[in-house]
């Protein structure tokens, strides 16, 4: 590596840094602009029509205040929190309970079930038949329709199965010799060892629930029951969003209110993002799908 600090090398490094910095800027600039607009007071909005830099002294949180003190948005927020927590819990229970037997060589149905699960990643009945099944089960306009149709993701199931399979057999065998049942082995031995994978899979399920939009459009016609993403979509596309805030609140630029709603919707995600990041290593997710 003796030639590594020549002029060409340095110029190359600088070039790489500049390109990466520009790409990063292109990702962050729209988000930054959006946050700035959500803090822009009326006078500045009418003067500039949105600016990349609003001095902190002039920031207003009025948009956030109005949205949070209205009826629609906080309600939708609560619904999304409910669906995300209960839905993720159900996802994890169902996925774990199926993944564990599938990781056991002595489980006779293992091979046929794995094939059946893999087949669903290849072919599906399609949107209309799935919708009709949910309707036949009378699940439309219930929160079940947002949780049950996607109870188990084949991908997450295979990831978890692979993790269970890679746990050392000796620990389980020792427990069995001590007279532990399958149930006790799963509950007292396997699950405590599986916290990392439960966290990863749980976070991915949770993000999917939080971001889910179309399922609610499809299955829930009662607007009172709409989750946050659906309400945000109507706030963003409504000509006049005054129906989403208190009628006697101070007048705010529509754009400020809209972007404040976007930020409020994203906030919980930003809190879990550092947790998500810990599990970014591709190896845990990719390699495990293959048998």
């Amino acid at each position: 590596m003796m030639r590594s600090m020549g002029f060409g090398e340095k110029a190359f490094d600088v070039g790489v840094w500049i390109i990466l910095a520009l790409v990063t800027l292109a990702v962050i600039l729209p988000l930054w602009y959006l946050i700035m607009i959500s803090l822009t007071p009326f006078e500045i909005w009418t003067r500039t029509g949105g600016s990349l830099f609003v001095p902190p002294a002039q920031w207003t949180f009025e948009g956030y205040k109005q949205l949070l003190s209205s009826a629609r948005l906080p309600r939708a927020f609560g619904i999304s929190v409910f669906i995300t927590t209960v839905g993720t819990a159900l996802n994890l229970i169902a996925t774990t309970l199926l993944a564990y037997p599938l990781s056991k060589k002595e489980f006779k149905l293992r091979q046929p079930l794995l094939l059946a699960v893999l087949f669903t990643t290849l072919f599906s009945g399609g949107l209309v038949p799935t919708y009709l099944v949910v309707r036949q089960l009378n699940l439309t306009n219930t929160y079940w329709s947002l949780m049950l149709p996607n109870l188990i993701s084949a991908f997450n199931l295979l990831v978890m199965k692979a993790f269970f399979q890679n746990l050392p057999d000796e620990i389980e065998e020792a427990a069995r010799i001590d007279g532990a049942s399958d149930w006790q082995v799963l509950w007292q031995i396997v699950l405590p060892l599986s916290k990392p994978i439960l966290a990863t899979v749980g976070l991915f399920y949770a993000v999917a629930h939080w971001n889910s939009f179309f399922d609610a459009i499809l299955y829930i016609s009662n607007t009172e029951m709409h989750p946050l993403q659906v309400v945000l979509r109507s706030i963003l596309s409504a000509g006049n969003i005054n129906e989403y805030v208190n009628p006697d609140a101070a007048i705010m630029p529509q754009e400020t209110l809209r972007m404040a709603a976007v930020v409020l919707t994203t906030l919980p995600l930003l809190f879990v993002y550092p947790l998500l990041q810990k599990h970014f290593t591709a190896g845990t997710l990719l390699g495990s799908v293959k048998e």
Partner: peptide
């Protein structure tokens, strides 16, 4: 096998039902 590993089968049951009802029944519905 079911007699011997009844617990494993019991564990798998909700998942099997899920795939039957929400994945395979719609395929039939097609």
């Amino acid at each position: 096998d079911i007699r011997r590993h009844s617990v494993l089968y019991l564990m798998a049951l909700p998942g099997i039902l899920y795939f039957l009802i929400f994945r395979y029944y719609p395929m039939y519905g097609a």
